[in-house]
């Protein structure tokens, strides 16, 4: 709508419009297992307020969320649980690996800790730090939004590949 109230329009490609919608409504599922979970709460709360970026509604149900935030140490017994939660999320879905432990095992280079969640599921964005500062989380979220807008994430690529496969018959 123009300033004087006259109707106006702009043109775009459907794909980009859909991606624009997706990037501004990343509903996170908080998978906080240790101290990083506290920092994640801080970045969701009013001081830093992640909802400014559309990550408005924190959903504890995998069916209702798009962004899996894995914040904390994933021990080997938790690995199948995390994988199940990821599998239960509907496509398109994105994964943020939050902190050193989730990204690489961190200081816990032992038998009981998964050495990076990318060994069990695809990760779109990593946040370094032990724990990362809320600014880091927000930066990661914005980077993820950029990638979603470009259609560069794992789940989108998979979607495109599936569509391509279908068009081939």
């Amino acid at each position: 709508m123009g300033k004087d109230g006259a109707p106006s329009y702009f043109t775009t490609r459907l794909e980009e419009f859909v991606n624009w919608g997706r990037k501004n409504a990343l509903w996170p599922l908080p998978f906080g297992t240790s101290c990083c979970g506290i920092e994640m709460m801080a970045s969701l709360c009013s001081d830093y307020d992640m909802s400014r970026f559309g990550a408005e509604v924190v959903r504890f149900s995998p069916r209702q969320s798009d962004l899996l935030i894995v914040a904390g140490i994933i021990v080997s017994k938790m690995a199948p649980v995390l994988r199940t939660v990821y599998d239960q999320m509907g496509d398109p879905k994105w994964v943020m690996s939050f902190g050193a432990c989730a990204s690489s095992g961190g200081i816990f280079n032992v038998y009981s800790v998964v050495q990076g969640i990318d060994t069990i599921l695809p990760v779109d964005v990593y946040v370094p730090g032990c724990p990362p500062a809320p600014e880091g989380v927000i930066h990661a979220l914005m980077r993820l939004q950029e990638r979603v807008a470009k259609g560069e994430t794992y789940s989108q690529r998979r979607e495109v590949a599936a569509r391509h496969q279908k068009s081939l018959g």
């Binding site: 280079n109 998964v114 069990i120």
Partner: peptide, 13 residues
């Protein structure tokens, strides 16, 4: 037992 004797099971037990 090896210190880094990781065993990862992606499926639930």
């Amino acid at each position: 037992y090896p210190l880094r004797g990781y065993q990862i099971f992606p499926t639930p037990e």
